[in-house]
Simulated scan of single mutants.
Amino acid sequence: MKVLFVGLGGIGQRHLRNIKELLGDEIEVYAFRQRKYQFVLDNKLNIKKGLNLDKHYNIKNVNSLDEAFKNNIDIVFITNPTSMHMEILMKAAENKCSIFVEKPISHNLKNVDKLVTKLNEYKNITFVGFQNRFHPCIKESKKLLEKNVIGQIVCVNIEIGENVRGWHKYEDYRKMYASRKDLGGGVILSQIHELDYIIWFLGMPKCVYAIGGKLSNLEIDVEDVASILLNYELNNKNIPVHIHEDYIQIPPSRKCKIIGTKGKIEFDLLNSTLVYYDEDGNEMLNKVYEFERNDMFKEELKVFIDAVKDKKRTIIPIEEGIKSLKMAIAIKESINKGNIINMNEI
């Protein structure tokens, strides 16, 4: 199986480590990348001394996508900056490759419809890297919501705050994709996981209103704070879902509270804890999950590879990535215009 990596920074190397562990010598690794770093990273993004990336993984480097696709590539991992995703998606689709694309699938909606047409034409297997769907807290919450244990949802509060300066130990935060407008950065797109899982839980909202922007002293040219209000129409009622995102907080915070008429669910993704209370405040479930963060990435990869081998549709195809991207674009538009944005207008 021939695998092409477009980009081998932190997330690209993580997927490379995991697929080598999963498939070993079954795969032949090609890479097309611009920065051509040769350091090797571990699961905590520390540089492993004395190792050369190309030699360590036996990588065959190519100088262009056209050169890469002459090698009859089976799978493409798109792990370069967000603003560059669409070009690679298009070419991978045309070359009938299976595609794993990191979130978000792009930084705007340009050519999205054309991409879907191509993917339908060539019947590519696609997967979007929303590894948080494999977090035990999110998986358990999804099950509880499907069982309707907390009754009708009346409100949701979500928070994701993490100081961007500490994301990558191996590079200056000011040069990261997440910090640069030209690379599709900003807290709304970079922290799109929260948008994805609320869509997975509740579907698409009716409308969006958001306030935020570049509010800190970080040396970046993208928004670093967003306070988002989503209006969900559930059971003929307007239900508020609030999402706070920032690039500032130390220590970081990543939590969710879902309140219903018969109880509530609270989870903390960083501490891997989940509590479900009934309507009288009794703890019906209190879990602390023992798992490594990389387990989510390994599980999503196995799901993707199994789908490729079985030639079946994945559980997070490109259409899921389009949903969260549309929500992100609506949020950014609301901040820029100061208006409520109806999702049917996006």
Rank of each mutant, 00 (worst) to 15 (best):
Thr314Glu: 04
Thr314Ile: 11
Ile315Thr: 14
Ile315Phe: 12
Ile315Gly: 07
Ile316Met: 13
Pro317Thr: 12
Pro317Cys: 05
Ile318Gly: 07
Ile318Tyr: 13
Ile318Ala: 08
Glu319Arg: 06
Glu319Ile: 12
Glu319Leu: 13
Glu320Asp: 15
Glu320Ile: 08
Gly321Ser: 13
Gly321Trp: 04
Gly321Ala: 12
Ile322Pro: 06
Lys323His: 12
Lys323Trp: 07
Lys323Leu: 14
Ser324Arg: 01
Ser324Cys: 09
Leu325Lys: 02
Leu325Cys: 07
Leu325Arg: 02
Lys326Leu: 08
Lys326His: 13
Lys326Ser: 13
Met327Lys: 03
Met327Gln: 08
Met327Arg: 01
Ile329Ser: 03
Ile329Phe: 01
Ala330Met: 10
Ile331Glu: 01
Lys332Glu: 14
Lys332His: 05
Glu333Ile: 04
Glu333Phe: 01
Glu333Trp: 03
Glu333Gln: 14
Glu333Cys: 08
Ser334Ala: 13
Ser334Leu: 06
Ser334Gly: 06
Ile335Gln: 00
Ile335Ser: 03
Ile335Met: 15
Ile335Phe: 11
Ile335Glu: 02
Ile335Val: 15
Ile335Leu: 08
Asn336Cys: 07
Asn336Glu: 15
Lys337Tyr: 09
Lys337Ser: 15
Gly338His: 09
Gly338Val: 13
Gly338Cys: 12
Asn339Val: 10
Ile340Phe: 10
Ile340Met: 13
Ile340Arg: 10
Ile341Leu: 02
Ile341Phe: 05
Asn342Pro: 00
Asn342Arg: 14
Met343Phe: 14
Met343Gly: 05
Asn344Ala: 04
Asn344Arg: 12
Asn344His: 14
Glu345Arg: 00
Glu345Leu: 11
Glu345Asp: 15
Glu345Ala: 10
Glu345Ile: 08
Ile346Tyr: 02
Ile346Cys: 05
Ile346Asn: 00
Ile346Ser: 02
